[in-house]
């Protein structure tokens, strides 16, 4: 990915109001692979009995990270939009731990990008959630 495309993509993702509201941070993104993370925050709790964050917050992180992976793919010119995304919740995320997401855009056609992703907390061996989805490709450079 050219330097200017990388900078533009970072500027775009840094300016997403919802990502900002959730405290999302970009890790790396290059060649169709992206990483992002999100802090634990009591405002994100979905189950007050356990303090576990809401699945919707994890979904938002995975969706954003998948979009970033698509944008970082060498065959993708502009920004993208989600066509569909499915998230499987393997286990509750541990309270007080940061959530990390890793997304891979493994195929790009003229109209569709195919992406899969995983969400992790401090335990690298057992994912919190996995995602699989399709995104819009094409668009202006």
């Amino acid at each position: 990915m050219t330097q200017s495309k990388l900078e533009r993509a970072r500027a775009f993702f840094d300016a997403i109001p919802h990502a900002h509201a959730l405290g999302m941070e970009i890790g790396t993104f290059e060649g169709g692979i992206a990483t992002m993370s999100m802090p634990y925050d009591t405002r994100f709790i979905g189950d007050p009995k356990t303090g576990v964050i809401h699945g919707g917050a994890v979904f938002a992180l995975l969706d954003t990270c998948c979009g970033l992976a698509v944008v970082s793919h060498p065959d993708q010119k502009g920004i993208t939009a989600t066509i569909d995304l499915r998230v499987d919740y393997m286990r509750p995320a541990s309270p007080n731990q940061r959530i990390r997401a890793e997304a891979t855009c493994y195929n790009v056609t003229r109209s569709v990008a195919f992406v899969r992703a995983v969400a992790l907390d401090d335990n690298d061996d057992k994912p919190v959630a996995t995602a699989t989805g399709t995104f819009v490709t094409g668009g202006e450079e």
């Binding site: 699945g55 919707g56 979904f59 995975l62 954003t64 939009a81 995304l85």
Partner: peptide, 13 residues
């Protein structure tokens, strides 16, 4: 446009 993650969370809620 609304964020896909906000939409998903809204539907899940």
């Amino acid at each position: 446009a609304l964020h896909g993650g906000a939409i998903a969370a809204f539907l899940e809620i």
